[in-house]
Design a protein around this nucleic acid. Structure first.
Lengths: 229, 229
DNA sequence: GTGAGGCGTGAAGACAACGTGAAGTCGCCA
DNA sequence: TGGCGACTTCACGTTGTCTTCACGCCTCAC
């Protein structure tokens, strides 16, 4: 089930998109402001965002830039702004496509499908991550460790951290990126909190938790997931 | 160098695209028919195709479908057909984006970049620095040295110094510039501090640390990164 | 030859970051 | 209301990094 977040302040547009996309088999979330959009993305990890630029308060471009600071979720901009400068600005800020209102629903769906088709995360149909030590089913939130493939349980926050790391293998993820991805953009926890959770994760997944080989610390910067060596 | 194939039967359009994209650093190939386009893609493996739908002979949609039968090269459709049916048809056939003529060059380039950004195969800008002695992945903070490509670790400050130097190859970076780049503008450390860190860096990366060939001292001024000799 | 200034190096203490055990808080459900 | 699990905070030991200092080398000018 593909989950799409619709960000627009006009109830009519939200409703129209919701109905149409819902009828086509997508699961639709709604947000009416940029701030709300950020926390929904952080909390729900939708597969795509449809973003209106003309939001009250936090502008759409700002939302776009904030999202691109820590997530690669596909974003299609929907807006009445038809000038080239706006298009270039949005695309350069990280939007995947730019559609001007009014638009046909069939075109929008075709564009959604085109962008999703390109998305590596969705394209790899197996949401499974397999290493020599453990196997993760990110979609089902199930984890199996060791030669016996015993199932173990991770808590929601642990899934958030692990999920974000393994979806960006080899990439160095900063503290701030991880915190934003898991707790949302406004949260600012004790510096130690992430360390505690990483400790729990390592104790559950690493063969030798005191010498991590998969979840690597980059001192002073952040963490990194290293699938194999 | 990113290579783009322009498929259009109108010489003016080909010429305009060629000039504009060429000026922006892309290498441009041209094809005037669908058949020609297919053989160029097969022979040259361009990184992207800009495809006009209104081709004489073999129609653009047919070209699209033929290409998608055996390649996933990113394709942006450029056309005068502005009706929704054409858009949906092209996108569903495998196009990555659909731009109607006339269009602005800035928008087109932004869309090209957006599509390439999505494509994992095309490393638009590889953050890797490779020399005969070592390889640096600046994004992941990983360093490999020697013929064996053994991974070694650099500390955060060492990454700061190395990163600033290798991002400005051949350029002489003054003592003050480096300090400001790594510690910030207000910090004023012991004059010797940078020398100590450079010593550590050389010991880790230089084949013969006592005779540096990559990280060169410019006595009385600063340091310089010399990629090859 | 000799002294001054700049540079690199080894050693050692100061310091910050990390990981961990334990205790405290919160919300949920019985 | 009590118990439980998940989350968070705190204190502390450990580890690794950063910084300072002393010293020797080299170059260059006198």
């Amino acid at each position: 089930m593909i989950r799409i977040l619709v960000v627009d302040d006009e109830p009519q547009i939200r409703r129209a998109l919701s109905l149409n996309l819902g009828a086509r088999g997508y699961e639709v979330y709604e947000a009416t402001s940029g701030e709300a959009a950020l926390s929904v993305v952080a909390g729900e990890h939708p597969d795509m965002v449809l973003l209106d630029l003309g939001l009250p308060g936090m502008d759409g471009i700002m939302v776009l830039e904030a999202l691109r600071g820590w997530t690669k979720v596909p974003i299609i901009v929907l807006t009445v702004r038809d000038d080239e400068r706006s298009k270039v600005q949005a695309l350069e800020a990280g939007a995947d496509d730019y559609v001007t209102k009014p638009f046909g629903m069939a075109e929008l769906v075709a564009r959604i499908r085109a962008v999703l088709r390109r998305n590596p995360a969705i394209a790899t149909e197996s949401p499974e991550v397999v290493t020599t030590a453990f196997r993760l089913d990110l979609a089902a939130h199930r984890a199996f460790v060791g030669a016996e493939q015993n199932e173990i349980r991770l808590t929601p926050i642990e899934w958030g951290i692990v999920g974000h790391l393994v979806r960006n293998p080899h990439r160095l993820i900063t503290y701030r990126q991880l915190v934003t991805a898991v707790w949302g953009p406004t949260y600012d926890p004790d510096q130690n909190l992430l360390r505690v959770h990483m400790g729990h994760i390592r104790r559950k997944l690493e063969p030798d938790p005191s010498r991590p080989t998969f979840f690597i610390t980059d001192s002073g910067v952040g963490y990194r997931f290293q699938p194999a060596d």
